[in-house]
């Protein structure tokens, strides 16, 4: 499998407290990769490192086959970027902003840009300073899409947008991806949104990558198990035991990752009874994952 983005052993420090250490990210080509993490976990910093806006202390970054930052201009010409905060010159009108942006991208498609203008109901003569948050979000997405990129890097593109705008933006994005097989790297803390569109997920917390796996594995893989007469030491388990908590009497609650149905046999083998399997939604799974990452309680 080829990767649109490969990050190896990335190390970056900002100030005295924040650090990204030993980061490794692989974004398969043609995938929609959801980059999850709580606020302040380093998602935006990772994206800026990926695009060459920041320089790492150590590590390698390869995007679309090119090394960052050495080949950044060539890579950026094929990458559409929507940053976390609007970054356009607010003194311009929409028409001027389009003209400015188009001047730098040889692959700019004016026809499609005009279509998106109509689709997003934006007026050319509107000043950027007067745009609402939703309109600005749509404009940012328009600029990223109209340059026909191979890779889209979206940093919380729908954050703060109302559901209608969010729908418009995501619809345009999915249309583009379906037609052009582009790779999408989208970061967000809106898990339900990513759940619907992404096929890969990476979770980041406190500058470290917690896990990186296909979305279906992530969704289905984390379960809460009610176990009776659980052994004191679980031994070798076919799943990843994230946490175990005592409940009423001999009943314990185990949080596991990588669960599959045939793994019931393990409990029979250790003399325990599996009373209940509780499916966690993505948000609950994400929370559990972070909780156990921050405070491992195996054997407690």
């Amino acid at each position: 499998m080829s990767h649109a983005v490969e990050i190896r052993d990335l190390h970056y420090r900002a100030g005295k407290t924040f650090e990204i250490r030993d980061l490794a990210v692989n974004v398969p080509t043609g995938s929609m990769y959801g980059f999850l993490g709580p606020n302040g976990s380093g998602k935006t910093t990772t994206i800026r490192l990926m695009l060459g806006l920041l320089r790492p202390i150590k590590g390698t970054i390869t995007v679309l086959g090119g090394a960052v930052p050495r080949e950044s201009p060539r890579i950026l010409a094929r990458t559409g970027y929507v940053p976390e905060q609007p970054h356009l010159y607010t003194s311009l009108t929409i028409s001027e902003a389009l003209a400015f942006h188009a001047a730098f991208y040889p692959t700019w498609d004016w026809k499609w840009a005009n279509e998106l203008l109509g689709q997003f109901q934006l007026r050319r003569d509107q000043g950027l300073a007067r745009l609402s948050k939703g309109e600005m979000g749509k404009l940012e997405m328009l600029l990223a899409l109209a340059q026909r990129p191979e890779l889209l890097v979206l940093d919380e593109p729908t954050d703060g947008l109302d559901p209608v705008v969010r729908r418009d933006v995501l619809t345009a994005l999915l249309d583009y991806v379906s037609q052009h097989n582009a790779t999408v790297f989208i970061s967000s803390h809106l898990i339900h949104e990513l759940e619907r569109i992404c096929d890969w997920v990476g979770v980041m917390d406190r500058g470290r990558l917690v896990t990186e796996l296909p979305m279906h594995s992530f969704k289905s893989g984390i379960k809460r198990l009610r176990v009776e007469h659980a052994p004191a030491l679980p031994g070798d388990t076919p799943f990843v035991l994230l946490a175990r908590e005592g409940g009423n009497g001999s009943l314990e609650t185990w949080t596991v990752r990588g669960w599959q149905a045939p793994m019931r046999q393990y409990f029979e083998g250790v003399g325990a009874s599996l009373r209940e399997i509780v499916d966690l939604d993505l948000e609950e799974g994400f929370v559990e994952l972070l909780r156990t990452f921050r405070e491992p309680t195996i054997g407690a």
Partner: peptide, 17 residues
């Protein structure tokens, strides 16, 4: 001025050296 206000994000993300 405008680049400073935007922390140079736009300028640095343009595809030119």
């Amino acid at each position: 001025g405008p680049d400073h206000r935007g922390k140079h994000i736009y300028a640095l993300s343009l595809p030119i050296p």
